[in-house]
Design a binder for these strands. Structure first.
Length: 188
DNA sequence: CAATAGATCATCT
DNA sequence: GATGATCTATTGC
């Protein structure tokens, strides 16, 4: 079962938390989401949408269940999923995956990764391993080649909440969610 | 193992 | 013209 639009049409925090344990699917590659971060609307200055609606941030203000893909540091791309009802900004950054399928393809796309553990551990690595590029910016994640599957037999896990990584503004806001004890998260 | 320098460009000031 | 929601290789303990 692919997660429906109603899953994403909720508060960014709820979506970020509930995405843990779900399966991100792109073509033949699949990975279990083990780490996410919420980027809110309003006064969250760490979010791209904080500066208002621009050409780049248009997707974040649009309907939920879309992909927001952008280039960071001139070199790497990051994948976000848009939350909140249409018109309200909010998105969830996917930071780490536990590879589930298409592992050989991922290894080919990430020659620098020695271990399976390093294939999608970190937002830039994740997009490389999954073959996600800016071409997918604005793509509908409830249908098509890039989706999130929800019918996963959920083993029990605890959710750990920490501050977000690698930002300057609002650096102490606890908006990073990860599966406690999972070895595929981007850092302990 | 920890710290750090360098790569590189779309977006916004 | 400055600035990043990063990754990798390299250096130094």
């Amino acid at each position: 079962m692919i997660l429906p639009r109603s899953f994403y049409r909720r508060s960014t925090v709820e979506v970020a938390r509930d995405l843990l344990g779900k399966i991100l699917v792109h073509g033949e590659t699949e990975g279990r989401i083990v780490e996410t971060e919420a980027y809110l609307g309003g006064n969250d200055l760490a979010a791209h949408s904080a500066r208002g609606l621009t050409e780049r941030t248009r997707v974040i203000f649009g309907p939920p269940g879309r992909a927001y893909v952008y280039l960071i540091y001139g070199m790497y791309e990051c994948l976000n999923l848009v939350a909140e009802p249409n018109g309200k900004p909010g998105c969830v950054l996917l930071r780490a995956l536990e590879p589930v399928a298409g592992i050989e393809v991922m290894q080919r796309r990430r020659p620098a990764a020695r271990a399976v553990r390093d294939l999608a551990r970190g937002p830039g690595r994740l997009t490389l391993a999954m073959g996600i590029t800016r071409r997918l910016n604005g793509a509908d994640v409830t249908r098509g080649r890039l989706t999130v599957r929800g019918d996963v037999p959920q083993e029990k896990f605890e959710i750990e909440v920490t501050p977000r990584i690698g930002i300057r503004h609002c650096a102490d806001w606890p908006l990073r969610y990860l599966i406690k004890g999972n070895h595929y998260v981007s850092r302990a």
